[in-house]
Design a protein around this nucleic acid. Structure first.
Lengths: 233, 233
DNA sequence: CCCTGTCTGTCGGCCAGCCGACATTCGGCA
DNA sequence: TGCCGAATGTCGGCTGGCCGACAGACAGGG
């Protein structure tokens, strides 16, 4: 396979729900739902809440993470405009198990469980799309598990960067810029390492000229080299 | 042998798809699908296959695991009668990423992608149920990830046993018997530890009288005590 | 503009659990 | 019933990365 992907890959991850919906279906969704705003750092919902609503993100970024009493929080994924979240608990019933927190000021569409059911019955294509999104996330999580079990900290971090790059990367000249700001602590919470380990691995990679870190943004100098580093260095 | 197998736990995990389907819907599913048999240890599909079919398990047990080239395999879950598998790849397109292997002689219902789509359009309740199943698995995998990150090997193993107990446990007198045969290696592949570590933790638990191991079957003497052991030493 | 809280960089000590190696036991099949 | 491969039990040595601790560097709100 070529490594020469033109720009942000269309593939992978919890792929953008809204943009894959037909225009008519999307219009109906907007009509059936309610618009809502949240401030930066505000929680859309928290673990333990009842969880009777689904959200479609229109603007901003949302962090989905699972708190562990007496342990480290684990960031499961981020949602970007077009993404859906809160679906799992609505489908299966039971309360929320994760926190959903706005990383910045955001705008969402909200549907209650009954509104959603109604919408899905009249829009079967949307139901299939939801299955796709859930399946995507399932695979992504499966990959994370395999990663955690098989790879050392450095490899886990590199693979995380590569994963983020295919989904949130933007090509700028030779480099790929990630359209995400992440602290070392957040990265640590995603790969299951400590903050210190992330710091030292990242500065190592930077010294080797594989990535550049500017103001909490990651820039990748060479995808190929980075790819080659996994579990070999 | 035992007459007392009435109530395993109804909840949790990838809950039994077929039995939650209405009788009419289930009948239609049988009619729309094709019956197929696989021998013990035979693969229903392997990672890399095209993946255009969904399976509904009627008899036997199936192991779903993700192979890691140059690493340890990871068992994601087991399927029991009534469970669905192979759904994710059909929904999202792309090839299989996991192996599905028959643990014993099995019997499945098979639907092609087009047959499934057709079926779902005429049976909206089934579509909702599929979302539930996918959501259940998503949550289960999320728990696994949190587990891997926060807990030491002993706690991971205990939590695995407890998880298995709620889903596959059968109460017999004072004890709870797991209706599963597992080798230490398989347990290791589920919790991300080595075979040796599993062996030593299990024999420690056995010496403490919390579990009994008889012929690759786990019997739990005290759920409460076992629960109390997590991450406390 | 300063000041304060958050984020980054770096160090040494320490230990859970991996690795390799081996002996022993089990159980399924001829 | 005997055999053989698979599964289990046990042992040191070694090390990745966690933990705690601290010092500098930002950055953004007042």
């Amino acid at each position: 396979m070529e490594s020469n992907q033109a720009q942000a890959a269309p593939r992978s991850g919890q792929a953008d729900f809204l943009s894959r919906l037909s225009a008519a279906d999307a219009d109906d969704l907007v009509r059936a739902s309610q618009r809502k705003l949240f401030a930066k750092n505000e929680f859309i919902f928290k673990a333990g809440d009842a969880g009777r609503h689904v959200y479609f993100l229109q603007r901003g970024r949302v962090k989905i993470y699972q708190p562990a009493p007496e342990g480290k929080d684990v960031i499961l994924w981020f949602c970007f405009p077009g993404d859906m979240f809160g679906m799992a608990e609505v489908a299966r019933g039971g309360g929320r198990v994760v926190h959903a927190q706005a990383c910045e000021a955001i705008e969402v569409l909200v549907l209650s469980q009954t509104e959603l059911t109604e919408y899905l019955q009249t829009h079967p294509a949307a139901a299939l799309l939801i299955m796709q999104v859930l399946s995507d996330r399932l695979r992504a999580l499966g990959d994370v598990v395999v990663n955690l079990i098989n790879d050392d900290a450095q490899t886990r971090i590199i693979k995380l960067i590569l994963r983020l790059a295919t989904r949130y990367g933007v090509r700028v000249d030779q480099d790929i810029h990630l359209s995400i700001q992440l602290t070392h602590q957040e990265i640590a919470d995603m790969v299951g390492a400590t903050r210190q380990t992330v710091t030292s691995v990242l500065s190592l990679l930077q010294r080797q000229g594989l990535v550049r870190l500017e103001n909490r943004r990651i820039r990748i100098d060479s995808l190929e080299l980075l790819d080659g580093m996994t579990s070999s260095g």
